[in-house]
Design a protein around this nucleic acid. Structure first.
Lengths: 111, 111
DNA sequence: GCGCTATTTCGACAAACCTAGAATTAAGCC
DNA sequence: GGCTTAATTCTAGGTTTGTCGAAATAGCGC
């Protein structure tokens, strides 16, 4: 069983790489149905195997989800997980600190 | 020169470790003047050298600040940096996505 | 200066990560 | 089945990380 702290750490680590941050940005700005891996590859101009590796890291962390559509795989961001992560930082990690946390994101309740 | 993406990635990576997350939590919950390294060490029960290594990682990333007080070093969280980081995720990385970002933290404007 | 305490730096080792070319699987089409 | 495209998995390399004991540094009091 993976604890909450470990899960948050895994997700933060997954975000902690410039290429993966760039990937996520592209995925977020892409269509809601998901962005094909090939499109990410041509846009970011990195080898397909390297991209695939980073995508797997993001997917393993639960930050993005995959869906097959014929031969192409579409990746889309999981905003719920992303939200839970930033919430975690302020609610579970930094609660009780000297600074007021930001509001617990009452907006953005998709899924 | 380190770009904004690289900086955000470095900070996220620094957060992406269970022990460092635990350290940060302790530091946040400690006194505003900072928590001595020795107290962190006894509370978390990890070797001093290991702790020091993680503290250096957090400090290099700018997430915590150090201040000497006699022979003890006090570590305290930099909430401004922490805030800028969570804001970055939603404003610079995930802007324009399908989900509404959380409000750009109108509260908590310390620093 | 000497001793004492708090903390870091050094050194070494194993484990994990990043990169990317080559080989492989998956799906569709003829 | 064979061909083509899309993407992953395999394999291998060099680099970075995590851990921790031992040694070194920093500050204080005598």
């Amino acid at each position: 069983m993976t604890g909450r702290v470990e899960q948050a750490a895994e997700r933060l680590k997954a975000l902690g790489h410039p290429v993966r941050l760039a990937i996520l940005r592209r995925v977020v700005q892409g269509p809601e149905a998901g962005t094909p891996a090939g499109e990410l590859q041509s846009r970011l101009d990195i080898p397909a195997s390297t991209l695939s590796h980073h995508l797997a890291t993001l997917a393993d962390a639960g930050l993005v989800q995959v869906a097959r559509e014929g031969t192409t795989l579409r990746y889309r961001a999981d905003f719920g997980v992303l939200h839970a992560l930033t919430d975690y930082i302020w609610q579970d990690c930094c609660a009780g600190g000297a600074a007021e946390p930001p509001p617990p994101s009452p907006c953005c309740d998709r899924d």
